[in-house]
């Protein structure tokens, strides 16, 4: 069920230019903060822009940030996790201390500190969320490697003289990907929540680009008149995150029932 909603959302985001009834950035001073109506199903904002259209374009930002930042995080996590798990010893110790270190920082404080020094744009947001979110994947991959490298098929490849890279890439990694896939699916909604939180604070993707978070930020300023500005984008976030979470759980159960507990321990809520 989660999967159906996720597919619909991706389609909506991709087709935003086609289906959006209005230009998301076109102001209309005669329709400032109009409530939901036939012309504007979800109302208009402080500049008279159509909320539905802005939300459709916002979906693109949310999904793009979700995918790219999780991609970055997974790449770092898989590389470092493999290095730590396969080599063990000093490399393992160093990488795991780095993981411990990154986990000590309250993520939102670290994000804000980094963003304060950089120009906020959609690219910096993606990079920063990715760079602060790889620790869970690294731990997962390392744990898988520790278990897999004792198995016969790995020891056999070592015996016939395969190179370390080949063993990791061709033999261990494919077998370790199941929990990573689950962690990635669950990481996307976490990244979307983080991005919308940053945008809500006004420190994420900058206006006039529409994102769910910064529409909500405008909603906060119009809290006494424009409830629709606050309600609908939040509902969109809730629905998106919920369906990704359900999808993630579904994949987990389908891939391997044993993972039900172990993966849950590594995937914690963002921030």
């Amino acid at each position: 069920m989660g999967g159906v909603v996720v597919v619909c959302l991706v389609l909506l985001a991709l087709l935003a230019p086609v289906i959006a009834p209005w230009n998301p950035n076109r102001p209309d001073i005669q329709k400032i903060l109009d409530g939901p109506s036939n012309a504007h199903p979800l109302g208009t904002d402080q500049l008279g822009r159509d909320v539905l259209s802005r939300m459709l374009y916002g979906a693109r930002v949310s999904l793009a940030v979700g995918f790219v930042s999780v991609g970055i995080a997974s790449l770092i996590g898989v590389v470092l996790g493999s290095l730590a798990g396969y080599n063990g010893g000093l490399v393992d110790g160093a990488i795991m201390r780095l993981v411990d270190l990154m986990l000590v920082f309250p993520r939102f404080f670290l994000l804000l500190a980094v963003l304060a020094f950089l120009r906020p744009s959609i690219w910096t947001i993606m990079a920063v969320i990715g760079l602060t979110g790889w620790m869970g994947v690294a731990r997962l991959v390392r744990a898988e490697f520790l278990a897999l490298k004792e198995r016969e098929f790995v020891i056999w490849s070592q015996a016939v003289g395969a190179s370390g890279f080949r063993i990791v890439w061709r033999h261990i990694l494919p077998n370790a990907m199941a929990p990573v896939l689950v962690a990635m699916t669950l990481g996307i909604p976490a990244a979307i929540l983080t991005e919308s939180g940053l945008s809500f604070l006004g420190l994420g993707v900058q206006p006039p680009h529409a994102t769910w978070g910064n529409i909500l930020n405008e909603g906060k300023d119009a809290i006494e008149i424009g409830w629709w500005l606050s309600v609908y984008p939040g509902l969109a976030i809730l629905l998106t995150v919920l369906s990704y979470n359900l999808l993630g759980e579904g994949i987990r159960d389908a891939l391997d029932p044993r993972l039900r507990q172990s993966a849950a321990r590594f995937v914690s809520r963002a921030r």
Partner: peptide
């Protein structure tokens, strides 16, 4: 799945 800032609003 609920964003805390949305709940707050």
């Amino acid at each position: 799945a609920t964003p805390d800032f949305w709940l707050a609003l």
